[in-house]
Amino acid sequence: MRPFAYAAPASVPEALDALVAAGPDARFLAGGTTLYDLMKLGVEAPPAVVDVHRLPELAVVDTAGPDELVFGAGARMADVAEDPVLLRDYPMLAESLAKAASQQLRTMATVGGNLLQRTRCSYFRGGAPFACNKREPGSGCSALEGIDRAHAVLGTSDSCIATYAGDWAVALIALDAVVDVLGPDGARTVALADLHHEPGSHPERETTLAAGELILRIRVPTTRTARGSTYHKIRDRESYAFALASAATAVALDADGVVTDARIALGGVATRPWRAAAAERTLVGAPLTVDTARRAGEAALAGARPGRHNGFKIELAVRTVTDALRIAGERAVQ
C-alpha cells in the first residue's frame, strides 16, 4: 500500500474542507470495506484520506416519518437491516442489506459508502498483468475475452463488462430513492437512478458525484407497495457471496389480485443498479401469475448481451425476477 495522510475531522464541514485541501485524489473513508481493501490491493492509492466513519451527523436514521425514510450515510448496514419499520414495511430494503457480505462487514460498512462499492471483477482487483479500463483508463479490458461468468449482461460496453456488486442500491433504485450530497459547490439532491454511470467509453467514471462531494443521506419516499416486496439474491454459495443474479421486487395488488403497482430492479447482472421499468409496466393491470411474472422477467432482461460464459445469467435473472415476484406477491397488501 502506498503511504497516505490521514485526517479524522470532527464534523461534516471540516471533513469537506479537509478533502478539498488534500487535493483531487484524496478520498473519504467510511467503513473501509471497499476503499481500504482496494488500497491493500494497490488498486486505489489516494495520497490522503479523510475519515468520516464516526461523524454523528451522518449516523441519523429516521424511518418514522409519513413521507420518507431517511438513512444517514454513516449508518451501519447491520443496524439499518434490523430497523423494525424496514423489516415490517420494506422487506426488500432490509433483505438487501442482510444478504450482503457477512455480519462483520455489515457492522463496519455504511449505507452511504455501500452505494459506492466497486466491482469485484477479478481483472479489476487483480492488478498486473490484467488490463482494466476502470483501473487504468485506456488500458483495455481483460474480461471481454476472459472468464466472464460473473460479469454483466446489461449495460455493458466494449470498454467494460464489470458487474455492479452492491445489493442495497438495487433495492433503493426500485423505490425511487434520492441521495443528498454536499460538496465544495454546495448541497444538491441526486436521484439514485442518476448516481451511477454505465461504463460506456469511460468505465473509470462510476458515479455522477463531483470531486469532493460527500453523500450525507439517502431518502426513500414512503410507499405501501414495499410491504409486498423482497430482495432475492442468488449466489454460488448460500451466503457470503456476491450475486450471480438478484432481483428487488415489490408489488401492490387490488382485491382481485390485479397488480396496481410494481417495482423491479436487478443486481448481479448489470454494470450499475438496474431499474427494470419496462418490466414493471408489463405487470400493472395484470393479475400476478407465474406467467405474468415470467413475462416481466423476460422484459427486464430484454436487450441483455451475453458474453462467453455468462449467458446463463439471462435465464437465471428471468427466473430470479419470476420467483421474487412470487415472494413479493405472497407478502403483498391486497
Binding site: 469485484r120 477479478s122 482487483r125 454460488d236 454459495r237 448460500e238 451466503s239 457470503y240 457471496a241 456476491f242
Partner: peptide
Amino acid sequence: SLEEYPIAVNAD
C-alpha cells in the same frame, strides 16, 4: 482469493 474461490460456508 477466498472470495472468488468459494469454499463451503456454514449456511451451505
